[in-house]
């Protein structure tokens, strides 16, 4: 099977207006506006196979959204090649637009003062979905999302989670096979996050859809993605399986200890690097090779009721990758 998304040496440089603070800066800004080029994405290459769910990770401002916008054809790459479903996104041909969808957690497309169903009718008209087909698809997607009852309520009356589900329904009504999701669970509570995740998994299975997903919630990534792309300061710093990433960057373990009585953080810090201390429960993160040593010291020096050893939380691991990324990758280039 040939890849459905191919990205080669993708680069995007933005001109950004610069303004010095103060009156002098304001006047200079008014008469002679100065621009500085910011490299948002640099030489990024990857391919994605049909049906894959890929997590797209990176801190704020790393270039995730810019990359998604180039993949959906909203912005033109400064250099490099993008192909999605055998199309050049920036041409925004109808065949391409019918294949893809973009969901942005912080932006919404539904008409605020009307019921979701009305916005869906507009989408059906725009994508030329016949009435019978429309009813069937809405029924099916609403079932998957558990949203039947809310379709006739004005969007402004929906909870954040319901609204996100309604956004997903609207974005998927034309049954796209390539989904670009930018923070689809932003601001949702744990239950809503889980149901959005479950829905995405079901949709992926049902239609063999390809999904590229960014999220700040690691649970989204671990639940959905086998493979992750990691971007830092515009450069791709990792492309591979999530498991390998965890192994490569987490040769350490988390030890959780329940103490018989409270101890001062200083006492515990003396034994091993203390991550947090909550009453009588202490968390340590220690390198793999020091695991046995630390445990024996803990057992010898403090009175322990319970002790568990787990993989550290993935946020911790990703944080380490980015921290090491700072060291290895170059500063973004600024040009006048």
């Amino acid at each position: 099977m040939s890849p459905i998304i191919t990205v080669d040496d993708l680069t995007k440089v933005y001109p950004v207006a610069v303004k010095e603070p103060g009156m002098k800066g304001t006047l200079a800004h008014f008469f002679r506006r100065q621009y500085r080029n910011i490299v948002a994405v640099q030489d990024v290459s990857f391919t994605i196979e049909p049906g894959e769910i890929v997590g797209f990770l990176g801190p704020n401002g790393a270039g995730k959204t810019t990359t998604l916008k180039m993949l959906t054809g909203l912005i033109h790459p400064s250099s490099g090649q993008v192909r999605v479903a055998d199309q050049v996104p920036f041409q925004r041909r109808e065949a391409f637009l019918r294949t893809i969808t973009l969901v942005m957690g912080q932006k919404q497309q539904l008409l605020w003062d009307l019921p979701t169903l009305d916005s869906l009718r507009i989408n059906a008209a725009v994508y030329n979905i016949p009435d019978a087909e429309f009813r069937q698809r809405v029924g099916e997607l609403a079932d998957m999302l558990d949203l039947q009852a809310q379709l006739t309520q004005p969007v402004r009356k929906l909870s954040l989670g319901q609204r996100m589900k309604a956004e997903l329904l609207a974005a998927l009504l034309h049954r796209p096979t390539v989904l670009f999701l930018d923070e689809p669970t932003l601001g949702l509570d744990v239950n809503a996050q889980t149901s959005v995740r479950d829905f995405l998994r079901t949709y992926n299975h049902a239609y063999g859809a390809t999904v590229l997903l960014t999220s700040h919630y690691m649970a989204d990534i671990t639940a959905l993605c086998k493979r992750v792309l990691m971007i830092y300061q515009g450069r791709l710093i990792y492309d591979g399986s999530l498991d390998e990433l965890l192994e490569q960057f987490s040769p350490c373990r988390e030890i959780t200890v329940e103490l018989a009585r409270e101890r001062s953080p200083l006492d515990l810090e003396a034994i091993a690097p203390l991550q947090s201390l909550n009453g009588r429960v202490a968390h340590f993160i220690v390198p793999q090779e020091k695991l046995t040593y630390t445990i024996s010291r803990l057992l010898a020096e403090v009175e322990v009721i319970d002790l568990t050893i787990t993989d550290p939380p993935i946020e911790e691991v990703i944080g380490r990758v980015f921290a090491s990324g700072t060291v290895s990758s170059q500063e973004p280039q600024d040009g006048a």
Partner: peptide, 9 residues
């Protein structure tokens, strides 16, 4: 919001 509209045919 224009971005959403631009992605529709």
């Amino acid at each position: 919001k224009l971005s959403f509209r631009l992605l529709q045919p």
